[in-house]
Protein backbone atom coordinates (compact mmCIF):
# COMPACT_ATOMS: atom_id res chain seq x y z
CA UNK A 1 0.00 0.00 0.00
CA UNK A 2 1.12 3.53 -0.68
CA UNK A 3 3.07 4.92 2.25
CA UNK A 4 1.99 8.42 1.29
CA UNK A 5 -1.65 7.59 1.59
CA UNK A 6 -1.26 5.46 4.69
CA UNK A 7 0.46 8.38 6.44
CA UNK A 8 -2.25 10.77 5.30
CA UNK A 9 -4.95 8.37 6.42
CA UNK A 10 -3.40 7.66 9.79
CA UNK A 11 -2.51 11.23 10.67
CA UNK A 12 -5.42 13.14 9.19
CA UNK A 13 -8.38 10.81 8.88
CA UNK A 14 -7.96 8.36 11.73
CA UNK A 15 -6.97 11.12 14.13
CA UNK A 16 -9.98 13.13 12.97
CA UNK A 17 -8.02 16.19 12.00
CA UNK A 18 -9.86 16.36 8.70
CA UNK A 19 -13.37 15.03 9.08
CA UNK A 20 -15.21 13.22 6.27
CA UNK A 21 -12.47 14.07 3.80
CA UNK A 22 -11.20 10.58 2.98
CA UNK A 23 -12.22 10.58 -0.68
CA UNK A 24 -10.89 14.09 -1.23
CA UNK A 25 -7.59 13.25 0.41
CA UNK A 26 -7.35 10.03 -1.57
CA UNK A 27 -7.89 11.90 -4.82
CA UNK A 28 -5.32 14.54 -3.87
CA UNK A 29 -2.81 11.76 -3.23
CA UNK A 30 -3.80 10.26 -6.61
CA UNK A 31 -3.02 13.64 -8.17
CA UNK A 32 0.29 13.89 -6.35
CA UNK A 33 1.43 10.36 -7.23
CA UNK A 34 0.42 10.65 -10.87
CA UNK A 35 1.96 14.12 -11.26
CA UNK A 36 -1.34 15.75 -12.03
CA UNK A 37 -2.93 18.97 -10.91
CA UNK A 38 -6.20 19.26 -9.11
CA UNK A 39 -9.16 21.55 -9.50
CA UNK A 40 -11.14 21.65 -6.30
CA UNK A 41 -14.63 23.00 -6.52
CA UNK A 42 -16.35 23.96 -3.34
CA UNK A 43 -17.97 26.78 -1.48
CA UNK A 44 -15.85 28.76 0.97
CA UNK A 45 -15.30 27.17 4.35
CA UNK A 46 -15.11 23.48 3.49
CA UNK A 47 -11.46 23.07 4.52
CA UNK A 48 -9.89 23.28 1.09
CA UNK A 49 -6.87 25.19 2.36
CA UNK A 50 -6.49 23.05 5.48
CA UNK A 51 -6.54 19.90 3.38
CA UNK A 52 -3.78 21.06 1.05
CA UNK A 53 -1.69 22.54 3.84
CA UNK A 54 -1.95 19.43 6.00
CA UNK A 55 -0.85 17.13 3.16
CA UNK A 56 2.11 19.34 2.34
CA UNK A 57 3.25 19.43 5.96
CA UNK A 58 2.86 15.70 6.49
CA UNK A 59 4.80 14.77 3.39
CA UNK A 60 7.66 17.14 4.06
CA UNK A 61 6.82 19.22 1.03
CA UNK A 62 6.83 22.97 0.65
CA UNK A 63 3.47 24.69 0.48
CA UNK A 64 2.44 28.12 -0.81
CA UNK A 65 -0.85 29.81 -1.32
CA UNK A 66 -1.91 32.45 -3.79
CA UNK A 67 -5.19 34.29 -3.56
CA UNK A 68 -6.23 35.13 -7.08
CA UNK A 69 -7.57 38.60 -7.83
CA UNK A 70 -8.32 40.31 -11.15
CA UNK A 71 -5.31 42.63 -10.79
CA UNK A 72 -2.81 39.85 -10.12
CA UNK A 73 -0.04 39.75 -12.73
CA UNK A 74 1.76 36.67 -14.10
CA UNK A 75 4.97 37.94 -12.51
CA UNK A 76 3.24 37.91 -9.11
CA UNK A 77 3.04 34.12 -9.44
CA UNK A 78 6.07 33.26 -11.48
CA UNK A 79 8.57 35.79 -10.16
CA UNK A 80 10.60 38.67 -11.52
CA UNK A 81 14.03 40.28 -11.50
CA UNK A 82 14.71 43.19 -9.19
CA UNK A 83 17.73 45.45 -9.20
CA UNK A 84 19.97 44.91 -6.19
CA UNK A 85 21.73 48.14 -5.37
CA UNK A 86 24.37 46.43 -3.22
CA UNK A 87 25.59 44.11 -5.92
CA UNK A 88 24.60 46.37 -8.77
CA UNK A 89 22.89 43.52 -10.62
CA UNK A 90 19.45 42.09 -11.15
CA UNK A 91 18.48 39.25 -8.81
CA UNK A 92 15.64 36.85 -9.26
CA UNK A 93 12.76 37.08 -6.83
CA UNK A 94 10.99 33.76 -7.26
CA UNK A 95 7.24 33.73 -7.18
CA UNK A 96 5.09 31.37 -5.14
CA UNK A 97 5.07 28.90 -8.01
CA UNK A 98 8.44 27.67 -6.80
CA UNK A 99 7.04 25.19 -4.34
CA UNK A 100 5.87 21.58 -4.17
CA UNK A 101 2.22 22.18 -3.41
CA UNK A 102 0.70 25.42 -4.61
CA UNK A 103 -2.81 26.28 -3.52
CA UNK A 104 -4.35 28.71 -5.95
CA UNK A 105 -7.43 30.08 -4.28
CA UNK A 106 -10.30 31.11 -6.54
CA UNK A 107 -8.43 30.58 -9.79
CA UNK A 108 -11.34 31.96 -11.79
CA UNK A 109 -10.89 35.39 -10.18
CA UNK A 110 -7.55 35.91 -11.94
CA UNK A 111 -7.42 37.54 -15.36
CA UNK A 112 -7.12 35.17 -18.35
CA UNK A 113 -3.54 36.37 -18.82
CA UNK A 114 -2.49 35.33 -15.34
CA UNK A 115 -4.46 32.10 -15.60
CA UNK A 116 -2.72 31.09 -18.81
CA UNK A 117 0.72 31.91 -17.38
CA UNK A 118 -0.03 29.65 -14.45
CA UNK A 119 -1.49 26.88 -16.53
CA UNK A 120 1.47 26.94 -18.88
CA UNK A 121 3.78 26.47 -15.93
CA UNK A 122 1.57 23.61 -14.75
CA UNK A 123 1.86 21.87 -18.08
CA UNK A 124 5.55 22.45 -18.79
CA UNK A 125 6.69 22.22 -15.17
CA UNK A 126 9.01 25.07 -15.88
CA UNK A 127 8.79 28.85 -16.07
CA UNK A 128 10.55 31.36 -18.22
CA UNK A 129 11.55 34.65 -16.61
CA UNK A 130 13.23 37.25 -18.72
CA UNK A 131 14.17 34.60 -21.25
CA UNK A 132 15.67 32.24 -18.70
CA UNK A 133 14.08 28.85 -18.10
CA UNK A 134 13.68 27.63 -14.55
CA UNK A 135 12.63 24.05 -13.83
CA UNK A 136 10.09 23.63 -11.07
CA UNK A 137 11.03 21.32 -8.28
CA UNK A 138 9.38 17.88 -8.27
CA UNK A 139 6.88 16.98 -7.01
CA UNK A 140 4.91 19.93 -8.21
CA UNK A 141 1.18 19.96 -7.82
CA UNK A 142 -1.26 22.82 -8.15
CA UNK A 143 -4.47 22.62 -6.20
CA UNK A 144 -6.72 25.29 -7.64
CA UNK A 145 -10.03 26.10 -6.05
CA UNK A 146 -13.11 27.66 -7.51
CA UNK A 147 -16.41 28.65 -6.04
CA UNK A 148 -19.29 27.02 -7.93
CA UNK A 149 -21.84 29.72 -7.13
CA UNK A 150 -19.95 32.90 -7.92
CA UNK A 151 -20.78 34.25 -11.35
CA UNK A 152 -19.84 37.92 -11.14
CA UNK A 153 -16.29 39.22 -11.42
CA UNK A 154 -14.92 35.87 -12.47
CA UNK A 155 -13.17 34.63 -15.59
CA UNK A 156 -14.27 31.04 -16.16
CA UNK A 157 -11.46 28.77 -17.23
CA UNK A 158 -11.53 27.92 -20.95
CA UNK A 159 -12.05 24.27 -21.88
CA UNK A 160 -8.48 23.90 -23.09
CA UNK A 161 -7.18 25.01 -19.73
CA UNK A 162 -9.60 22.89 -17.77
CA UNK A 163 -8.18 19.92 -19.65
CA UNK A 164 -4.84 20.50 -17.92
CA UNK A 165 -6.22 19.55 -14.55
CA UNK A 166 -5.91 15.84 -13.99
CA UNK A 167 -8.82 15.67 -11.55
CA UNK A 168 -11.69 17.77 -10.43
CA UNK A 169 -12.70 17.21 -6.83
CA UNK A 170 -15.92 18.37 -5.28
CA UNK A 171 -15.30 19.62 -1.75
CA UNK A 172 -18.60 18.86 -0.08
CA UNK A 173 -20.18 19.98 3.12
CA UNK A 174 -19.78 17.60 6.03
CA UNK A 175 -22.74 15.66 7.38
CA UNK A 176 -24.56 16.94 10.45
CA UNK A 177 -22.61 14.63 12.75
CA UNK A 178 -19.38 15.58 11.04
CA UNK A 179 -20.21 19.23 11.49
CA UNK A 180 -20.85 18.72 15.20
CA UNK A 181 -17.45 17.03 15.57
CA UNK A 182 -15.81 19.88 13.67
CA UNK A 183 -17.44 22.46 15.95
CA UNK A 184 -16.42 20.61 19.08
CA UNK A 185 -12.83 20.14 17.94
CA UNK A 186 -12.29 23.37 15.98
CA UNK A 187 -9.45 24.73 18.14
CA UNK A 188 -7.87 21.30 18.49
CA UNK A 189 -7.96 20.77 14.71
CA UNK A 190 -6.34 24.15 14.07
CA UNK A 191 -3.62 23.43 16.58
CA UNK A 192 -3.06 19.92 15.18
CA UNK A 193 -2.58 21.24 11.67
CA UNK A 194 -0.26 23.97 12.92
CA UNK A 195 1.91 21.47 14.75
CA UNK A 196 1.88 18.69 12.14
CA UNK A 197 5.31 17.15 11.71
CA UNK A 198 6.56 15.70 8.41
CA UNK A 199 6.20 11.92 8.37
CA UNK A 200 7.83 11.39 4.99
CA UNK A 201 10.49 13.10 2.97
CA UNK A 202 10.29 14.57 -0.48
CA UNK A 203 12.50 11.76 -1.78
CA UNK A 204 10.13 9.12 -0.46
CA UNK A 205 7.27 10.83 -2.25
CA UNK A 206 9.29 10.93 -5.45
CA UNK A 207 10.06 7.24 -5.09
CA UNK A 208 6.36 6.41 -4.92
CA UNK A 209 5.74 8.54 -7.99
CA UNK A 210 8.24 6.36 -9.82
CA UNK A 211 6.57 3.16 -8.61
CA UNK A 212 3.17 4.38 -9.76
CA UNK A 213 4.56 5.01 -13.23
CA UNK A 214 5.45 1.32 -13.47
CA UNK A 215 2.07 -0.06 -12.42
CA UNK A 216 0.92 -2.74 -14.86
CA UNK A 217 -1.98 -2.01 -17.16
CA UNK A 218 -3.35 -4.90 -19.18
CA UNK A 219 -4.30 -4.25 -22.82
CA UNK A 220 -8.00 -4.83 -22.23
CA UNK A 221 -7.97 -2.01 -19.65
CA UNK A 222 -6.63 0.39 -22.27
CA UNK A 223 -9.44 -0.74 -24.55
CA UNK A 224 -11.93 -0.21 -21.76
CA UNK A 225 -10.68 3.36 -21.17
CA UNK A 226 -10.75 4.08 -24.90
CA UNK A 227 -14.38 2.89 -25.06
CA UNK A 228 -15.33 5.17 -22.18
CA UNK A 229 -13.66 8.20 -23.75
CA UNK A 230 -15.21 7.45 -27.14
CA UNK A 231 -18.60 7.10 -25.54
CA UNK A 232 -18.32 10.63 -24.09
CA UNK A 233 -18.05 11.90 -27.63
CA UNK A 234 -20.98 9.87 -28.92
CA UNK A 235 -23.36 10.68 -26.08
CA UNK A 236 -26.31 12.71 -27.40
CA UNK A 237 -26.26 15.11 -24.44
CA UNK A 238 -22.61 16.02 -24.84
CA UNK A 239 -21.37 19.14 -26.64
CA UNK A 240 -17.69 18.38 -26.20
CA UNK A 241 -16.39 14.96 -25.26
CA UNK A 242 -13.18 13.89 -23.61
CA UNK A 243 -9.82 14.37 -25.37
CA UNK A 244 -6.95 11.88 -25.74
CA UNK A 245 -5.34 13.78 -22.85
CA UNK A 246 -8.35 12.71 -20.78
CA UNK A 247 -7.72 9.06 -21.69
CA UNK A 248 -4.08 9.41 -20.60
CA UNK A 249 -5.26 11.08 -17.40
CA UNK A 250 -7.61 8.18 -16.62
CA UNK A 251 -4.80 5.68 -16.98
CA UNK A 252 -2.43 7.77 -14.85
CA UNK A 253 -5.01 8.29 -12.12
CA UNK A 254 -6.11 4.63 -12.23
CA UNK A 255 -2.49 3.54 -11.73
CA UNK A 256 -2.18 5.76 -8.66
CA UNK A 257 -5.54 4.56 -7.34
CA UNK A 258 -4.50 0.92 -7.81
CA UNK A 259 -1.26 1.61 -5.93
CA UNK A 260 -3.11 3.29 -3.08
CA UNK A 261 -5.38 0.23 -2.95
CA UNK A 262 -2.30 -1.94 -2.53
CA UNK A 263 -2.03 -3.40 -6.02
CA UNK A 264 0.66 -3.29 -8.66
CA UNK A 265 -1.81 -3.70 -11.51
CA UNK A 266 -4.85 -1.78 -12.69
CA UNK A 267 -8.28 -3.37 -12.79
CA UNK A 268 -11.46 -1.93 -14.34
CA UNK A 269 -12.62 -0.98 -10.83
CA UNK A 270 -9.77 1.53 -10.60
CA UNK A 271 -10.83 3.08 -13.88
CA UNK A 272 -14.40 3.34 -12.63
CA UNK A 273 -13.21 4.91 -9.39
CA UNK A 274 -11.24 7.72 -11.01
CA UNK A 275 -13.15 8.26 -14.25
CA UNK A 276 -15.81 10.62 -12.82
CA UNK A 277 -13.18 12.94 -11.30
CA UNK A 278 -11.08 12.85 -14.47
CA UNK A 279 -13.90 13.38 -16.94
CA UNK A 280 -16.40 15.61 -15.17
CA UNK A 281 -14.65 18.88 -16.10
CA UNK A 282 -13.74 17.70 -19.58
CA UNK A 283 -17.20 16.71 -20.74
CA UNK A 284 -19.37 19.66 -21.70
CA UNK A 285 -23.12 19.22 -21.67
CA UNK A 286 -25.32 20.76 -24.36
CA UNK A 287 -26.64 24.07 -23.00
CA UNK A 288 -30.30 23.17 -23.61
CA UNK A 289 -29.86 20.08 -21.45
CA UNK A 290 -27.70 21.81 -18.89
CA UNK A 291 -30.47 24.25 -18.05
CA UNK A 292 -32.73 21.25 -17.55
CA UNK A 293 -30.40 20.02 -14.83
CA UNK A 294 -28.37 17.42 -16.76
CA UNK A 295 -24.83 17.50 -15.40
CA UNK A 296 -21.57 16.17 -16.75
CA UNK A 297 -21.32 13.93 -13.72
CA UNK A 298 -24.67 12.30 -14.55
CA UNK A 299 -23.48 11.64 -18.09
CA UNK A 300 -20.16 10.17 -16.99
CA UNK A 301 -21.87 7.92 -14.47
CA UNK A 302 -24.36 6.81 -17.11
CA UNK A 303 -21.52 6.02 -19.51
CA UNK A 304 -19.79 3.96 -16.84
CA UNK A 305 -22.92 1.89 -16.37
CA UNK A 306 -23.19 1.33 -20.13
CA UNK A 307 -19.68 0.60 -21.37
CA UNK A 308 -18.93 -3.14 -21.03
CA UNK A 309 -15.92 -4.08 -18.93
CA UNK A 310 -13.23 -6.23 -20.57
CA UNK A 311 -14.47 -9.68 -21.54
CA UNK A 312 -12.50 -12.68 -22.67
Amino acid sequence: MSRVFSVVKRELIDKEILIEKELELKLIVVGLLSRGHILMEGVPGVAKTYTSKAIAKLLGLTFKRVQMTPDLLPSDIIGFYVYDQKTGSFVLRKGPIFTNILLVDEINRASPRTQSALLEAMQERQVTIEGEVYELEEPFIVIATENPIEMEGVFPLPEAQLDRFLLKIEARYPSKNGLITIMKRADEIEESIRTLKPMLTRDEVLEEIKIVRDIRVEDSVYEYVASIVEETRKHPAVRLGASPRAAIAIIKAAKAWAYIEGRTYVIPDDVKAVAPSVLVHRVLVKPELEIRGVSAKDIVLEILTKVPVPKP
Partner: peptide
Protein backbone atom coordinates in the same frame (compact mmCIF):
# COMPACT_ATOMS: atom_id res chain seq x y z
CA UNK B 1 -10.62 -17.67 -18.27
CA UNK B 2 -13.29 -20.11 -19.41
CA UNK B 3 -13.43 -21.54 -15.89
CA UNK B 4 -14.00 -18.06 -14.44
CA UNK B 5 -16.76 -17.14 -16.90
CA UNK B 6 -18.38 -20.55 -16.36
CA UNK B 7 -18.41 -19.86 -12.63
CA UNK B 8 -20.05 -16.49 -13.33
CA UNK B 9 -22.71 -18.27 -15.39
CA UNK B 10 -23.23 -20.82 -12.62
CA UNK B 11 -23.66 -18.06 -10.07
CA UNK B 12 -26.13 -16.29 -12.34
CA UNK B 13 -28.19 -19.45 -12.60
CA UNK B 14 -28.05 -20.19 -8.91
CA UNK B 15 -28.83 -16.71 -7.65
CA UNK B 16 -31.01 -15.53 -10.50
CA UNK B 17 -28.95 -12.32 -10.65
CA UNK B 18 -27.80 -11.54 -14.16
CA UNK B 19 -24.37 -9.93 -14.42
CA UNK B 20 -24.54 -6.58 -16.14
CA UNK B 21 -22.03 -6.17 -18.99
CA UNK B 22 -20.65 -3.05 -17.29
CA UNK B 23 -20.17 -4.74 -13.91
CA UNK B 24 -16.58 -5.58 -13.05
CA UNK B 25 -15.60 -8.96 -11.60
CA UNK B 26 -15.39 -7.45 -8.13
Amino acid sequence: LKAYWSSVKLMELMTGVRRSSSATHR
